[in-house]
Design a protein around this nucleic acid. Sequence first.
DNA 1: CCCGCTTGTATACGGCTGTATACTTGATTA
DNA 2: TAATCAAGTATACAGCCGTATACAAGCGGG
Lengths: 209, 209
Amino acid sequence: MSVIAEGKLKLLDAALKLIPRSRSLTSLGLRELAREAGLNPNTFYRHFSGIEDFGLFVLEHVAKEVKQQVRLLRKTAASQGQATQDTVGFVFGYFLKNPAVVHVALQELHGASPRLRQAMRDQLDASAREMAEDVMERGLAPGLAPDAVHEISRNTIRHVLMRGFDYIECPAQRDAIQAETERFILRQFVGAIAEQEAPDIMARLQQRG
Amino acid sequence: MSVIAEGKLKLLDAALKLIPRSRSLTSLGLRELAREAGLNPNTFYRHFSGIEDFGLFVLEHVAKEVKQQVRLLRKTAASQGQATQDTVGFVFGYFLKNPAVVHVALQELHGASPRLRQAMRDQLDASAREMAEDVMERGLAPGLAPDAVHEISRNTIRHVLMRGFDYIECPAQRDAIQAETERFILRQFVGAIAEQEAPDIMARLQQRG
DNA sequence: CCCGCTTGTATACGGCTGTATACTTGATTA
DNA sequence: TAATCAAGTATACAGCCGTATACAAGCGGG
């Protein structure tokens, strides 16, 4: 036991292959999947009760892979002094090699299945927590309240995911997108620190609320 | 002429009614739409060549309505000194009354149809330009480069849309989401100004890149 | 050795879908 | 008033879909 059946893996691969075309995962046809996997449609039922069940399985698999990448990223970042642009570059590079990750994430995050949405949210929150920890441990945001770091991390994760989509889609603008994303991240941290420590700037914007 | 046929409007209404359930718009069945509209399936073909064509029509309609809301918002904002929280509250209130707008926007923005994606992008960019103009005309971001204002506006529009989804979905956390969104917007502007004018803060973060 | 379990297959059925063809109706307009 | 045309309907058909039932092959443990 504990070894995953061949057909189950084939269905997973088929899904990852089909997602860039059809997006939503929940809208993937069961027969379509089986066809792509070279299996009989009924094999699907040997492993999953329905499409949503299958979706959770796919999500779980993707999440595992992403976590592994994050761990790798943190390791290399800890050894050498890693800059924001290197990190963003690493992530976008990963997205480019695994577009299905981005597609499925964005799709299910706003998709029709509440269970898949929740699973995606949980996954993104976990990534955000990991990022926040990393930022704090490495002292990258000196003097910033932990709550603020967590909030910024959550915003950043989502934003990077969205821009990752653009990055995949618009090859001609990749440098610009990466630069914008880096500015975005930096601005959030700078803004949060200035909120605490530069009352003059805050005073000037006060009329906005 | 120039008056829109009854069936065409009925199909539009049906789509807006069905979108919250099925999301993606492109995945709406043609028969499903006709059923909801109380029409014969073939009536669809009297007005549209296919689902994508129909999607563009729906998007166009939604865009028109949103633009109208934005104009209304700018008017009331100009008369009384409008604060960020009022603006965010107004937008989220609108989203709450028209959830289909948020759903269709997020879905098609990352959806499978390139034409619909492009249409959504264009629409969001237009909204961002309008926001940027507003910010600059009202002098809300003193001393900030126009390019920066535009960039921040683009980021803000997307972010507000995403959080609008959460706002609709999680009634228990609406206040928190609104507060976070306001902080997000403020931080971007503060951060951009500090980039230009508070070199000490920048120096402290310099090691991040 | 054979029983039972897991994995995969074959066939089949009803339902829904997109779409083609042909008909009705009601308004416009020449 | 008669012709034209847009808008909506009726019927029909082939194709795909999810799923139910029944069967086959491999494999581990008694």
